[in-house]
């Protein structure tokens, strides 16, 4: 056996480096592995876009492009099917509109209270509770809307259908409250205290500080949270599938049944539409429309929060 103490330092370094051949292999391999993981997320996006695009093009081979955008009738199950997207868009926007009428005032109110009025103790208790509200599966909200909220609304509003836009709209709003509250609260909390104190020193009440100083300063974040909320409301599926009904139409009466884009997709996949039929491909055209809507909203929110941010 070789006596190691007789080796020169440079020889020993060489020996060491040879011994760690496997680790230098890992050194080269692992960045590639991690990069591969990261690329999969990009492939997912590409997969979504190309899937939707490809199948939508197939759909438009059977259905004229003009019908899809010009017709205001959506009757895919009739013997002479009509594929005008607008009734589904109308239903989607109606439900989302109702949801935002609930989510914006309550979400913003909660955010203001938590950010400006509440003590640290209250904030630390309430925020996890709101997280619980956000973590409840949407099917549970759907069940709640259909079996609890709808009967109550029907007792109050005569003429309300069993399936209607109002009940799922309200419940989607409740579901979105935590998101708006949390994002708006973040925006308002990041307004520096020195600005608040300046307003207090001029004799402003807490409400005046909030409405005239903090809210304008945090406006970009607050508006961005509203836009993200709309995006969530548009993409919400199970609540409207359970409680909203399946009657696409151009009406804006919230007491009647509607159908949203998401609910239509669920209706079709539940009903075993044969592969290759126009109805099968129609869910991709609807999915594409839905994707474009939500993507536009998300990009808009991103733009607002970056472009109009007040930096301190």
């Amino acid at each position: 056996m070789e006596d190691r103490s007789k080796l020169s330092i440079s020889e020993r370094i060489e020996q060491k480096t040879k011994g760690s051949g496997s680790s230098s292999f890992m050194e080269k391999l692992m960045p590639a592995v991690f990069l591969l993981c990261a690329i999969i997320s990009i492939l997912t996006t590409l997969g979504i876009v190309f899937t939707l695009l490809f199948e939508t093009v197939t759909f438009f081979r059977g259905v004229p492009f003009a019908d899809f955008f010009a017709s205001t009738e959506w009757y895919p199950f009739f013997s002479e099917p009509q594929y005008g997207i607008w009734p589904l868009v109308n239903g989607t926007l109606l439900v989302a509109g109702i949801a935002m009428m609930v989510a914006i005032p309550f979400g913003l109110g909660a955010a203001i209270y938590l950010s400006e009025y509440a003590s640290e103790k209250v904030r630390k208790t309430v925020k996890p509770v709101l997280e619980v509200l956000a973590g409840i599966p949407t099917i549970v909200y759907g069940f709640f809307a259909l079996t609890f909220v709808t009967p109550i609304l029907r007792a109050v509003i005569p003429g309300l259908d069993v399936f209607n836009a109002l009940s799922p709209g309200i419940i989607i709003g409740v579901m979105i409250i935590p998101m708006i509250a949390s994002l708006s609260e973040d925006a308002m909390s990041s307004v520096p205290n020195s600005i608040r104190e300046g307003a207090f020193a001029l004799g402003a009440t807490r409400m005046e500080v909030t409405v005239k100083v903090v809210l304008p300063a945090a406006l970009s974040g607050v508006i961005a949270s509203f836009v993200l909320g709309i995006s969530r409301a548009i993409g919400e599926t199970m609540i409207v599938s359970v409680a909203g009904g399946a009657s696409p139409g151009m009406g804006i009466d919230p007491t009647g049944a509607v159908q949203t884009m998401t609910a239509y997709i669920v209706q079709v996949v539940k009903g075993d539409a044969g592969f290759g039929t126009p109805i099968y491909y129609s869910i991709y055209a609807v999915g594409m429309t839905l994707f474009v809507f939500t993507l536009a909203m998300n990009l808009l929110a991103h733009y607002i929060s970056r472009r109009f941010r007040e930096d301190y």
Binding site: L228, I234, G235, I265, L295
Partner: peptide, 9 residues
């Protein structure tokens, strides 16, 4: 921000 139903597609 992509709706879950689109992931289903």
């Amino acid at each position: 921000g992509v709706p879950s139903v689109v992931f289903g597609l």
